[in-house]
Design a protein around this nucleic acid. Structure first.
Length: 873
RNA sequence: GCGAGAGUGGCGGAACGGUAGACGCAGUCGACUCAAAAUCGACCGCCGCAAGGCAUGGGGGUUCGAAUCCCCCCUCUCGCACCA
């Protein structure tokens, strides 16, 4: 059953089949030996450059279908652009630092380096079996000291340039394991391994100053027209610029003030309370003397962990009894509440509440019986009678109930209020950002060491350039929790480079997002002894086409954009934007299967019945076919690319993945779809074989009707596939190729005529060259058959150009409508004059019938397209 | 809640405002075969014997003509989410 579509030939099978298992390695070797995909760091051949890059993989050990899709898409682009005359750089490497390697070390006692490099070797072999046009000479792993030493250098340059800060920050602390946890290691507020409730702990950590570039990162999004709109939008939201005012409220009966951030200073006269976050210093102060306040703060803290709780949590608060003075209204004071919906992380951790024009404040006010004073009058509303129910009014309008602001619109009110605050010296207009600086310290072993030394007398001292790289010690143990670098007996003890006294190395390593924030630039000069060689990086950057999953829409792409700017400002690179074009691919999904007892089954264990039901392959027990969803180990609906390639070949896998649907949408991997793609590889091969008897002949002077039709199909296909590839419509390109194959089959059945053999040969060679970006091995195999003894590789051939004369049809079929309804079609010569076309349209019997007894009011003729009669009566 | 995208046969999908459903998958029938597989051929949106009618989530509109443009509504997916 496993081999219904297997390539093995049976005795009765007289037609020889395309032997992909022999062909694919053969052509892979040929490409490698010829160095087809090599380019110089600094080319001198004058070709335009094109840099294609797919997001490099984490070396988990095996490739998955998402990789196959990602790298197939990139390879189609790379091979196509190369044929179009570009010098294409298409490198590959490994995002090799990270937690899984440490987990493997703890669970299986294998050293992270050994585990990682073995995984890399395995995955490299798998990728090579896909026949990708990669330049393996540029390969590196981010865990190579020869890579991360330059990362350390970049960091030190950033430090010098004032782009790095050290500040206190909260981390997830597992009190049982005594270790810092990554966010994904915190499950429902508990440590994933120990199950102990996670605590927040403050540590001194390194931050890259991404916020210094917030405005620029936001502005540049506007110009990035080759990025998907939604990715730009997600980044803009993430950066989260907001304009407003910061103002200080003075506590009644005290000199102390509370700072508030607001985007609505125009609504200050609608204030009815002030609220601070539970973590706010004022809340802490209230809690110190008021047990009830302390209890409320504690309650907020205990509840705040899981996201589901936050989403549904009711607004609750506690009145501290303190009051603040209004900045504009002499003598007016308002209560100060501690409220669970105020976020310490955003703004100042305190707000002024204006229930009339903010829904959250409204909910809070209604719950606790606080005043609701409308100060913005919607257009057309009557100021005397206007009231608010439980809905805050957030639209435009005219300010009222607001003294000096009365009569202004919202924007004018904001400006006037800010002016007054500034005059009074209690506040000013500011821009606030949601984007935070990027904390890059990780308390982990398997990462790039942060190259600084802590000295009691000199403070933080950068590791001098000549002492780089700071390498990871190999003799580490994972037998206890925490950071092995910290436990290491000698590694962290060093002499201070500045004063020579005993000092301590930084034992934190970088967030792995740092590793992936500049790898694309390093590929340009992958073995240089400086981070980036300007000639090379200035030639190849930016990446012309970057391809990867949407899951990296924000962090990886934003960090890379920032990092590139930082590298520019420290003189390492000329460009600001790393990725000129971005394409985000969809996921690869698969049906899931469950047996009667609810356990998940692998696709291999399931047999589909013709009636649509499914049973267990061995036991015959009924199987429930579940949803089509993302492949995951837990649901066992994964398909191993290695097994697919072994059974059907790389070209089949590549072809199916391209043919199923548009590449930016999620696709469904189906067994029948792969089988269909496999059948097509065999069919192409048969079309080529059928030519063997055809004599080699010079191009005939004229062709018969079948030959002319085939030649038109051939050249139309060139034009159509080219257009489809240019617009990333790979599924359409595939459809056009099928059409040409169908046209060739039709020509095979045609009566023999002079020149037909030549036309068939042209068609098959065209077919081979058009499939080359998608099915490169089969393309070479077919081409080689057509050119016995030749040594030219399709990989080295230029892209085909369609003959414009053959793109014009001999006759065109024109639709004839009466009042927009199709009543017939007529065949006319292309570009026939309107009056003849209309005359023959009217002569069509069916059309004539529809026109009978009617008066033709208007005759519409769109050349080569349509005739439409507008009639009356 | 805010934002974005998408709704077309049994399925994936195609379609510069101009013959809706290209192409593939699945399916039906036939040829070849002792048989099966493979292959080749024909059919394959819905209603209808037919003529014809109806069809691109629903409703309006613009237009000679709308899957495509505009307005309203419904559904689904994704992202963000007490961001003041």
């Amino acid at each position: 059953m496993n081999d219904t579509a297997a390539p093995a030939q049976t005795a009765s099978d007289s037609a020889p089949r395309y032997d992909f298992a022999a062909a694919e390695p053969k052509w892979q070797l040929a490409w490698a030996e010829r160095g087809c995909f090599r380019v110089a760091d600094v080319p001198t051949d004058g070709k335009p450059k094109y840099y294609v890059l797919e997001m490099f993989p984490y070396p988990s050990g095996k490739i998955h279908m998402g990789h196959v899709r990602n790298y197939t898409l990139g390879d189609v682009v790379a091979r196509y652009k190369r044929a179009r005359g570009f010098a294409v750089m298409h490198p590959m490497g490994w995002d090799a630092f990270g937690l899984p390697a440490e987990n493997a070390a703890r669970e299986r006692g294998v050293h992270p380096a050994k585990w990682t490099y073995e995984n890399i070797a395995n995955m490299r072999a798998e990728l090579q079996r896909m026949g990708l046009s990669l330049e393996w000479e540029r390969e590196f792993a981010t865990c190579d000291a020869s890579y991360y030493r330059h990362q350390q250098k970049l960091f030190l340059d950033f430090l010098k340039a004032g782009l790095v800060e050290r500040k206190e920050s909260w981390v997830n602390w597992d009190p049982v394991d005594g270790t810092v946890l990554a966010n994904e290691q915190v499950i429902d507020g508990k440590g994933w391994r120990s199950g102990a409730p996670v605590e927040k702990k403050q540590l001194s950590q390194w931050f890259l100053s991404i916020t210094k570039y917030a405005q620029e990162l936001l502005d540049a999004l506007e110009t990035m027209d080759r990025w998907p709109e939604r990715v730009r939008l997600m980044q803009a939201n993430w950066i989260g610029k907001s304009e407003g005012a910061r103002l200080a409220f003075q506590l009644d009966g005290s000199d102390e003030t509370v700072e508030v951030y607001t985007t609505r200073p125009d609504t200050l006269y609608g204030m009815s309370f002030l609220a601070v976050a539970p973590e706010h210093p004022l809340a802490a102060k209230a809690a110190a003397t008021d047990p009830k306040a302390a209890a409320f703060v504690a309650e907020c803290r205990s509840q705040g962990t899981s996201e589901a709780v936050i989403e549904t949590a009711e607004k609750r608060g506690y009145d501290t009894g303190l009051r603040v003075k209004h900045p504009f209204v002499e003598g007016a004071t308002y209560p100060v509440w501690i409220a669970n919906f105020v976020l310490m992380e955003y703004g100042t951790g305190a707000i002024f509440g204006c229930p009339g024009h903010d829904q959250r404040d409204m909910d809070f006010a209604r719950k606790y019986g606080l005043d609701v004073v409308p100060v913005v009058l919607p257009p057309g509303a009557d100021p005397a009678s206007f009231t608010l129910g439980n809905e805050a009014y957030v639209g435009p309008g005219t300010i009222f109930n607001s003294e000096f602001l009365n009569g202004l619109d919202v924007d004018g009110g904001k400006r006037a209020a800010i002016d007054r605050l500034e005059k009074l010296g209690v506040g000013q207009g500011i821009t606030n950002w949601r984007l935070r600086d990027w904390g890059v310290s990780r308390q982990r072993y398997w990462g790039c060491p942060i190259p600084v030394i802590h000295c009691e007398s000199c403070g933080v001292v950068p590791v001098p350039d000549d002492q780089l790289p700071v390498t990871l010690p190999e003799d580490v143990t994972f037998d206890r929790p925490g950071n092995p670098l910290d436990h290491h007996p000698t590694w962290k003890h060093v002499a201070c480079p500045s004063c020579g006294k005993p000092a301590r190395r930084e034992t934190d390593t970088f967030d792995t997002f740092v590793d992936s924030s500049w790898y694309f630039a390093r590929y340009c000069s992958p073995t240089a002894d400086i981070p980036l060689v300007r000639d090379a990086v200035d030639h190849w950057m930016p990446v012309d086409q970057y391809i990867g999953g949407i899951e990296h829409a924000i962090l990886h792409l934003l960090y890379s954009r920032f990092f590139t700017r930082a590298m520019k400002d420290t003189g390492h690179i000329a460009v600001k934007e790393p990725f000129a074009g971005l394409f985000t691919q969809g996921m690869v999904n698969h049906e899931s299967y469950r047996s009667a007892d609810g356990s998940w089954l692998y696709p291999d264990e399931v047999e589909k019945r013709p009636d649509g039901t499914a049973v267990h392959r061995d036991t015959g027990a009924p199987v429930t076919v579940g949803r089509v969803e993302a492949m995951s180990k837990s649901k066992r609906n994964t398909i191993d690319p290695g097994a697919i390639i072994a059974r059907y070949g790389a070209d089949t896998a590549r072809w199916f993945i391209l043919s199923d649907n548009p590449p930016d949408r999620d696709m469904e991997w189906t067994e029948s779809g792969v089988a269909g793609a496999f059948r097509f590889t065999q069919r192409i091969f048969r079309l080529a074989e059928a030519l063997d008897a055809a004599p080699q002949e010079a191009k005939p002077d004229s062709f018969g009707p079948a030959g002319r039709a085939l030649r038109r199909a051939t050249h139309r296909c060139i034009a159509a596939v080219t257009e489809a590839l240019e617009s990333f419509a790979f599924n359409v390109a595939v459809a056009r190729v099928y059409e040409l194959a169908n046209a060739i089959t039709e020509a095979e059945r045609a009566k023999p005529e002079a020149g037909l053999a030549w036309a068939r040969r042209e068609a098959v060679e065209t077919l081979a060259r058009l499939i080359a970006p998608a099915m490169p091995h089969l393309a070479e195999e077919v081409y080689a058959r057509l050119h016995p003894g030749g040594s030219t590789l399709v990989a080295d051939l230029p892209w085909l150009e369609a003959d414009p004369d053959l793109l014009v049809a001999e006759s065109v079929t024109i639709a004839v409508q009466v009042m927009g309804k199709l009543r017939g079609t007529i065949d006319v010569p292309p570009d026939a004059p309107a009056d003849t076309v209309i005359a023959s349209a009217e002569a069509d019997p069916n059309v004539a019938k529809a026109l009978e007894g009617k008066r033709i009011v208007k005759r519409i003729h769109v050349p080569n397209r349509i005739v439409n009669f507008v009639v009356a009566g």
